[in-house]
């Protein structure tokens, strides 16, 4: 068991190193930041001075090693734009992003699991077909389309909901729906399939042969088993949502989260913020994966005891 944990830890560390390297490499590929931060009208001498100051005159390998060293020393650098430590700039964005992520996940679970179960039980009736039709529809609509559409209807035409910022609970409604739309659709379909697999299993017949009610059979025996496969997909999707969904949705709604920060930093070539932001998001994705693995062990005793 210990060697299993050690190997898992080594794997995570290696992944993380790859992420750091990619974050470094990606930012070096996108042009010289001095031209953006200093703007026009810079003399050649000042420009050369700045380049030397930020170490941009050294070879890429040297820059990389310096980057790694300072990273593991806990020095993440200053934002080119805001002149503040990047750790502070990124840290104050974490909570708003987390709030949006959690509300999206909560909405997804609250809707897609009951809908998926119902769609499985009523697979041969209009209820099941209706649920699946809606799921297909939402699955096909990208989040930025959904977001724009909602802004048009609920903010511009009806003037019911605020668009920009995160000031009140009403601010959460549209970003949360935009974030979770595809997730709800995907997870509803997945829950339905997982339940259909389980419904045909022998132990469901055993449960009925015990004289349990249909509700007990479906939820205590059926959903409990289906939850194992559902969990693995939630993990992947939430991780994807944390990374990709937040970038798009936060930008559209000017949500003061990490996603919005990343987009802005990319536009402004604010390397230190961008690097650290990407690394922070990747760390979050890794963390979610670890949490899912642990939750997986709790849900499935066959894994907990080290057997497949």
């Amino acid at each position: 068991m210990l060697s299993y944990i050690a190997r898992a830890a080594a794997r995570i560390l290696l992944t993380f190193l790859v992420v750091i390297t990619l974050a470094f490499a990606a930012t070096r590929l996108s042009g010289n930041p001095i031209d953006y931060i200093a703007g026009q009208g810079l003399t050649q001498e000042d420009r050369a001075l700045l380049i030397r100051y930020y170490g941009l005159d050294r070879s890429v390998a040297e820059q990389y090693l310096a980057f790694l060293k300072s990273f593991f020393d806990g020095e993440f650098g200053l934002s080119y734009v805001e002149r503040r430590p990047v750790s502070v700039v990124v840290a104050e964005r974490i909570w708003p992003s987390l709030q949006l992520l959690l509300s999206s996940v909560a909405l997804t679970l609250a809707l897609s699991i009951p809908l998926g179960v119902l769609a499985a039980i009523w697979r041969n009736s209009w209820v099941g077909s209706a649920i699946m039709s809606f799921a297909f529809l939402f699955y096909a609509v990208p989040n930025f389309v959904l977001a724009t559409f909602m802004i048009l209807v609920f903010a511009y035409w009806l003037n019911w909901l605020p668009v920009v910022g995160n000031g009140s609970w009403a601010h959460f409604i549209m970003p949360t729906i935009a974030m979770s739309g595809i997730l709800i659709a995907g997870l509803t379909r997945f829950t339905r399939n997982a339940m259909l697999d389980v419904l045909g299993q022998d132990f469901m017949r055993t449960a009925r042969a015990k004289g349990l009610t249909e509700t007990e059979v479906i939820f205590r025996h059926g959903l409990r088993n289906a939850s194992i496969t559902i969990l693995s997909v939630i993990g992947l999707q939430v991780a994807g949502l944390a990374a990709a969904g937040s970038v798009v949705v936060e930008s559209i709604f000017s949500w003061p989260g990490i996603g919005e920060l990343l987009v802005r930093s990319a536009i402004l070539r604010d390397y230190p913020v961008l690097q650290f932001g990407v690394i922070a998001v990747s760390a979050a994705v890794l963390l979610i994966n670890v949490l899912v693995d642990i939750a997986y062990g709790f849900a499935d005793p066959r894994i907990r005891f080290g057997k497949a």
């Binding site: 132990f203 004289g211 409990r224 499935d300 005793p301």
Partner: peptide, 25 residues
């Protein structure tokens, strides 16, 4: 009525004990 009979007055044992038991309970 059948729910009161099943598991109580008539019980059943199936062929495959591994698939007939709930694996996560």
């Amino acid at each position: 009525t059948m729910r009161r009979v099943r598991g109580n007055r008539i019980a059943m044992v199936f062929q495959e004990p591994i698939t007939s038991l709930n694996p996560v309970m």
